[in-house]
Simulated assay, not measured.
Amino acid sequence: MKPLVVHRTTLSVLYGRFVLRDVWCDADDEGESRRDATAQVAGASTYQISVPASSFPPSTGLELRVWPGEPAPESSSWDGYRQLELHCPTGELIVELIACGAAVEITLPQGAGVYGVRVHRKQADTEEFLIELWWRTPLPPADDDEDFYGDLWT
Rank of each mutant, 00 (worst) to 15 (best):
T126N: 15
T46M: 12
V117H: 07
G61A: 10
W24L: 12
E132D: 15
R21F: 02
T107I: 06
A102S: 12
A103I: 01
A44Y: 00
D29L: 09
V19K: 04
R17P: 02
V117G: 15
W78C: 12
Y47V: 03
V51F: 09
L86F: 06
A42D: 06
D29M: 05
S45D: 05
P57M: 00
S76V: 06
V19F: 03
E63C: 06
L133S: 15
P89K: 02
I131R: 12
M1R: 11
V117R: 06
T107W: 00
R121W: 10
G91F: 02
W24G: 07
H7T: 10
E146H: 03
A37L: 08
P3V: 00
E63S: 01
I106L: 11
H87D: 07
R21I: 00
L20I: 08
R136W: 05
E105V: 05
Y15H: 15
F129H: 12
D145I: 01
C25L: 08
T126Y: 14
D145E: 08
T154I: 06
V114E: 09
V119S: 09
R65C: 05
V117I: 10
E96Q: 10
L93V: 12
G91K: 07
M1Y: 09
L20F: 08
V5M: 02
D36E: 11
I106R: 00
G113L: 02
D147I: 06
E128S: 15
Y15C: 04
S55E: 09
D28C: 05
L152H: 13
Q40K: 14
A112T: 02
V95L: 10
V114S: 07
P138W: 04
A99G: 00
E132C: 14
W67P: 05
D29I: 00
E132A: 14
D125S: 11
T126K: 14
S55W: 02
P89D: 03
S45L: 04
W24V: 03
S50P: 02
M1I: 03
E30M: 06
L93T: 08
I49F: 10
Y81H: 15
A142D: 08
A42E: 04
Q48C: 11
I106C: 09
S12A: 10
P71K: 09
T9M: 07
V13C: 11
V19G: 01
C100D: 03
W153L: 14
L14H: 05
L133R: 13
A53K: 13
D144I: 00
Q123K: 13
C88V: 15
P68H: 08
Y47E: 06
P52A: 11
Q110C: 08
G61E: 03
G150Y: 09
Q48A: 15
P140E: 07
V5K: 07
C88R: 01
Y81F: 15
A27Q: 11
S75A: 13
D22T: 06
L130A: 15
S54V: 05
S50L: 04
G31Q: 11
I94A: 04
H87V: 04
A27D: 07
H87S: 14
R65Q: 13
S55L: 05
I106F: 00
G43A: 08
T154E: 14
S76C: 03
S59I: 00
C25P: 01
T137P: 01
L139K: 05
M1S: 10
I94V: 12
W134N: 11
E127I: 13
